[in-house]
């Protein structure tokens, strides 16, 4: 069943078209990745799905409700972790969670129990009564994810969940996130511009300049760029190339003293290759395509390329100030 479906959705701000007629669906209890560079339209799309913005045209449905006409029903079905923390850092972890539970009308007898569970889930039970401003970036994000789940939403939105975290916190946050659909019966809709992080997604849509330019599983997207590449150094490149042609029907190319072949399943070719020409092979190197290569091929640019409007620059400055400031 599709928990989110978006049909030909357009969002314009004055003369700028932020989202330009996108259509996609998200399966229930899957992890869906919405990828693209800054300014591609990811946050605008999330804002529409979260009922914070109305689309200029087109439709968006979440859990069977129209995101612009039935915003109350949609809001009950979603939890959100924004790019910028929406925790109140002058309150304790427990207070943040208790206020959230009250806002979502969690009944009084259940409220305390759900908050305690969320604290355990975030691994913050020992820090429950500390002010959030004393927490590390990773702790705050875990608390926000746990908070977003207190009212048992059907969809949890994560907008750039790992932005501004150090590599160690990032990987531990991912371990935490990939458990969510099974543990909490929830669909994850996340955006990121770290391509390597999108590997955990069940399904990916890549957006650029407001349009979806590709979608599929991470594996199927990588197949778009023709699979793996095997590089060989041999003592006799000509003989090796002939053998490869005879054995696998693959024509090898020579470059810088190496020969390379492209094949969809590079890993399974290597054993046979070694068996046949092992005596002349000096080294073998297998290169797998990354989602970054996919993006590069589709758009001709790196995903991290910024589009630096003045407003974005100001926001970015304030964000980075707050991140430094909040950490202290």
């Amino acid at each position: 069943m599709q928990i989110i479906s978006v049909e030909n959705m357009v969002k314009r701000f004055g003369s700028i078209t932020a989202v330009d007629g996108i259509t996609f669906g998200v399966d229930e209890n899957s992890i869906f990745g919405f990828l693209g560079p800054n300014g591609a339209g990811k946050t605008t799309t999330i804002s529409i799905l979260c009922t914070l913005l109305d689309p200029t045209s087109g439709k968006a449905f979440l859990n069977g409700h129209d995101c612009s006409a039935e915003s109350a029903a949609v809001r009950k079905s979603i939890g959100i972790v924004f790019q910028d923390s929406s925790l109140d850092k002058d309150l304790t972890a427990r207070e943040n969670l208790m206020f959230h539970a009250r806002l979502y009308n969690v009944a009084t007898p259940e409220r305390k129990q759900r908050v305690d569970e969320a604290l355990v889930f975030a691994g913050l039970q020992d820090r429950a009564d500390d002010l959030v401003k004393k927490f590390s970036g990773g702790m705050k994000r875990r608390l926000e994810v746990a908070r977003g789940l207190i009212h048992k939403p059907k969809v949890l939105f994560l907008d750039e969940p790992t932005l501004g975290l150090d590599p160690q916190s990032r990987s531990s946050l991912w371990e935490f996130i990939i458990e969510l659909p099974k543990k909490h019966d929830v669909t994850i809709f996340m955006t990121t511009h770290y391509m390597e992080e999108a590997e955990v997604c069940d399904h990916i849509a890549i957006i650029d300049k407001g349009k979806i330019i590709a979608s599929g599983t991470p594996g199927s997207l990588k197949k778009l760029i023709g699979g793996d590449v095997i590089y060989l150094k041999t003592s006799d490149n000509r003989k090796a190339a002939e053998t490869l042609q005879k054995l696998f029907g693959l024509s090898a190319t020579e470059k810088d003293g190496e020969i390379f072949i492209s094949t969809p399943r590079g890993d399974s070719c290597i054993p046979a290759l070694i068996r046949e020409i092992g005596d002349i092979v000096l080294s073998v190197r297998l290169q797998r395509p990354t989602l970054n290569d996919v993006f590069l091929k589709l758009t001709g640019k790196e995903i991290r390329a910024e589009n630096g409007s003045v407003e974005n620059d100001v926001k970015e400055t304030v964000r980075s100030y707050r991140r430094r400031h909040d950490r202290g």
Partner: peptide, 12 residues
């Protein structure tokens, strides 16, 4: 823009 108001704005 940056804080708790977003949490309140998306609540039902």
């Amino acid at each position: 823009e940056f804080g708790f108001m977003k949490e309140i704005l998306v609540a039902p």
